[in-house]
């Protein structure tokens, strides 16, 4: 898993998952805030027709943070929503990931991925149940 992918999973964590993982972390990491956590928005872009020229669709709330561990790693987070604590914790785990990728993965990311899989699967099977199966009835006078 790349750092990019790990950050994507962290962005989908909920606050409790991050909290629990931090509480269970062997040595509480020492860190300082470099920027934020702060909440704001980003402008979402769409594409004309789906694949053409870009246009501004509307905004979405976002929180972000940048932290530095006492060991020097700088962690970033950008997450949808306005949860500053979540943004802070996600940045902290991004920083930790840089030196302890495996520990972050097994203690935190694996659990989040599982939950996301279950949720995605539920939507998929519910949607699949509404699939239309067309059949054509033969009509007319052919023998």
């Amino acid at each position: 898993m790349t750092r990019q992918e790990a950050m994507g999973v962290l962005a989908r964590a909920n606050r409790e998952e991050l909290h629990d993982a931090l509480d269970a972390w062997p040595e509480p990491p020492q860190s300082e805030a470099l920027r934020g956590p702060e909440a704001g928005m980003i402008m979402l872009r769409g594409r004309a027709g789906g694949g053409g020229a870009s246009f501004n669709l509307g905004e979405v709330t976002m929180a972000r943070a940048t932290v530095r561990l006492s060991t020097g790693e700088v962690g970033f987070s950008c997450v949808l929503g306005r949860d500053l604590e979540k943004a802070w914790l996600a940045a902290l785990f991004d920083a930790l990931w840089q030196s302890e990728a495996e520990a972050v993965d097994t203690r935190l990311l694996a659990g989040i991925r599982n939950r996301l899989d279950v949720e995605g699967r539920q939507t998929a099977v519910e949607t699949a149940a509404t699939r239309v199966n067309f059949f054509t009835m033969t009509r007319g006078e052919d023998e």
């Binding site: 470099l34 920027r35 940048t66 530095r68 020097g72 700088v74």
Partner: peptide
């Protein structure tokens, strides 16, 4: 650019 000095020295 992720060198630490990018991140310090602001308000």
């Amino acid at each position: 650019e992720t060198r630490a000095d990018t991140f310090s020295g602001g308000f």
